[in-house]
Amino acid sequence: MSAVTEKDLVDFVYREARLLDELRYEEWLALYAEDAHYWMPAEWQQTNPRLQASLMYEDMLLLKIRVERLSGARTFSQKPKSRAQHLLQVPQVDEIDPAENRYRTWTSFHYAETRGDEFTIYAGWARHDLRVEEGSLKIVLKRVDLVNFDAPFGNIQLFM
């Protein structure tokens, strides 16, 4: 891949959201590096995913379990199935550092998840830490901070 541009990073974030909205989870997982994490903090301006409470802090194994479970024959919480919709603000590029192979974006979003007659809106900010591996951008860390991280939610079954 030639030099990573701002547009490459913005397109990448949009593409991730689109794969999630179209429920194309295998392709979505392929956007993540082998050592990646998906993190949803449960505290304000949280710094530590291991020794502070989080809603999610998942490595690739746990994400694969989630994706496989969603289509399981005995996954009753997916009968009927959930669907998702992302509304993203233009991602802001916070870092482009080819020497360190480090790229970072910050994206404000609204996210809707629906199942049966239920429809719930969430709002927050997503941070993507990226790097180039074999010519393509990969997610090293996706951090999702909900504006109301401390509220009592019902089931959140898909990915923001």
Binding site: A42, R50, A53, L55, M56, Y57, F76, N155, I156
Partner: peptide, 28 residues
């Protein structure tokens, strides 16, 4: 610390609104 790390992990894997085990139970 590792013990507390496991406590936190257990809580989010089993008791969070984002927990797949929680999803199973709540559905029932």
């Amino acid at each position: 610390d590792t013990l507390f790390e496991r406590t936190l992990m257990y809580n989010r894997l089993i008791n969070a609104p984002t927990s797949i085990v929680g999803h199973d139970d709540l559905e029932m």
